[in-house]
Amino acid sequence: MTASADASHARQDAPRFAHRHLLGIEGLEPWDIEALLDLSEDAIEVSRKVEKKLSTLRGRTQINLFFEASTRTQSSFELAGKRLGADVMNMSVASSSVKKGETLVDTAATLNAMRPDIIVVRHHAAGAVQLLARKVGCSVVNAGDGAHEHPTQALLDALTIRRHKGSLNGLVVAICGDILHSRVARSNIILLNAMGARVRLCGPSTLMPTGAARLGCEVFTSMREALDSADVVMMLRLQRERMHAALIPSTREYFRYYGLDAVKLGYAKPDALVMHPGPMNRGVEIDPEVAESAQSVINEQVEMGVAVRMAVLDALAHHLPGSNTSPEAGVI
């Protein structure tokens, strides 16, 4: 990739990204995260050019293996791979032999035999991506495993915040809504804590996992308290199917107490960022007016998603067999 001389010079002093896979934020050091965010800044520039194609991954094969339906994450990874020059294949469950009863490990062995370089995996079961990574010879990127982790979402959120606030250190970030079922929340909690932010969680207690306070967060049931003087408000999607588990009574009551409207946003700092990983349920967890407001960076998050995924693929590419691992060449 091309980048400004200053930026690439700065990165050569930083430690190299020393991981073969990206399975979660857990296990990354603060300098790993900084390095990925720095790399992402360069990727933003690439994506904003007319000519968006690089050759970092030319000749490499990337398989997107999605066991769970996804629109934006899958297309974001597909675009990221293609912009880096990889051959990208999307494998969705509907057309795969998983439907015929093949186990995850068998699927991994089959794919491995096709000699891919990078597999991007989303699976509905926590730990499935980690299991698959042990069974293949290539790099694996976690695109979401159950309610466990979604590392590229946390990275893109961090990038979005950093670009607005300069640094994550010392910021008060309120993560609100269905924490219980959210991999986005878990990855964000780990990342934000690692980078020195103060994390608050807010939601009805039925949607708050046991022991949440022990993850290094303050836990609230009142949006007023959770949002008080916050720098960032991250809303999570309410998964409507959760209501059948009788965890909340109705979407109208949920919106009344936990939906982000202008009044609740008013408790946060005047320049607080409003974020949402999408897709949004307007009128359930977020008021349409707030979602479209000047404080909302929700669409920007999508752009940052492509950049972060380019950075991750690029960082992993240096560990692929046959790649030139000299520091000079390790720049997007």
Binding site: A246, P249, E253, R256, Y257
Partner: peptide
């Protein structure tokens, strides 16, 4: 619970 059916909780807050 709604309708006292014991299946979904009522809107306790409202």
């Amino acid at each position: 619970t709604k309708e006292l059916a014991g299946e979904e909780m009522a809107e306790i807050g409202l």
